[in-house]
Design a protein around this nucleic acid. Structure first.
Lengths: 208, 208
DNA sequence: TAGATTGTTAATCGATTAACAATC
DNA sequence: TAGATTGTTAATCGATTAACAATC
């Protein structure tokens, strides 16, 4: 069954991990009811989702908090270290470089790239900004597995190509572009203006 | 039929808007095939989605580029101005304040809040940082309709409550928290570490 | 045993897509 | 008319959830 977790379930695992990490320290087990409450989903959803991960809950008792946390971390691959490279040292790129949530769970920002000559060579939070041309060598040398694209849209595809060519198989894309890439490369897109536009749509219907 | 567009379709409208805005300037019409190609979705999907917006395409011809663009902008509410307030003047908040994509389509950042006394009163990009306590009055006075939460997780709920009390009905939440809020308040969550964790999951399966 | 709570089934719901008649 | 391309149907697929037997 390994590897066959539905995508909707995978997307909720980080949420469950956060929720199970936040239960009271004296609490040994927790119920699907409780997790559902704090995750904001249906209890049946929680049970179905958690039935995909290995050591199961116990009927009549619930889920062992420490065990569930460990299982989710393992399942999500957080027991390994992940080395992250960020392209684009503008406001967003710098904010991401210093984002506390990154280092919290084994994600390590080990490289920062930009194309602007006035930025190249400067230091952000112990990292030196390097030019795009060096992505290939640096990504390989520092064993980067995740590439983050925080460049303007016109540079996004070039940077993605360089990442992919250097062996990166996971990309987090903040640029408002649909990236072309070979099969086997996973891209997640986070688009701030898209989110705002969706909010604007619902604003028109509801409250006003 | 107004107001009954499926959520999955709504979430793709911004993408179509971007794609139709990017066709060659000499091109008068475009096909679902072409839009699908540049949006990275199925052509049948495009036709189904666009069948929800009003002036339809023309069989045998396609969609009028200028008209489709206008319709999508109207449908998404981008013909109105949207006033945005950002809570949290850390790296992320500052990056968002200066994010070019915000002002591009009628989203205007008109207030910036923080709780840190050393930040309050400083200026970021023509805005003065104000304390959380003033959210109520300022949001009302400046007619803010969208609240952005870029605070640490522990301040997120308090800020959300203040936004909601001040009449904000649309919230974009960057804090890793599930916000409690009354019905009628639309929240979209953007969680960077969740995205990384999902990538980490797939990394474990595919490429390695 | 009685109470609690899971895992799983089956029903429902919503989203995607192939296929094609409609029609420019 | 012939070719192109939509709008829409119907089939399929995947996700959600109520219900309940299993079982601690």
């Amino acid at each position: 069954m390994k590897g066959s977790i539905p995508t909707a379930t995978v997307a909720r695992l980080p949420l469950y991990l956060r929720c199970v990490s936040e239960v009271a320290p004296d609490q040994v087990t927790c119920s699907s009811e409780q997790l559902a409450e704090s995750a904001g989903v249906n209890p049946a959803q929680v049970r179905k989702d958690l039935s995909y991960v290995d050591p199961p809950g116990v009927r009549g008792v619930g889920y062992d908090v420490a065990e569930l946390r460990a299982v989710l971390r393992r399942e999500l691959g957080l027991t390994r270290e992940h080395r992250v490279a960020i392209a684009g040292a503008g406001n967003l790129g710098n904010a991401l470089t210093m984002y506390p949530g990154f280092n919290e769970s084994g994600f390590n920002v080990v490289a920062l790239f930009d194309t602007d000559p006035t930025k190249i060579g400067t230091r952000i939070d112990s990292l030196t900004v390097e030019p795009y041309e060096t992505i290939g060598t640096i990504v390989a040398a520092r064993d980067v597995s995740i590439g983050v694209i925080a460049t303007p849209v016109k540079a996004a595809q070039e940077v993605a190509d360089r990442f992919v060519e250097a062996g990166v198989r996971s990309i987090l894309n903040f640029a408002p572009a649909v990236l072309k890439r070979p099969a086997g490369v996973e891209v997640r897109r986070v688009d701030l203006s898209t989110e705002l536009q969706i909010l604007a749509y619902y604003e028109g219907r509801l409250g006003g």
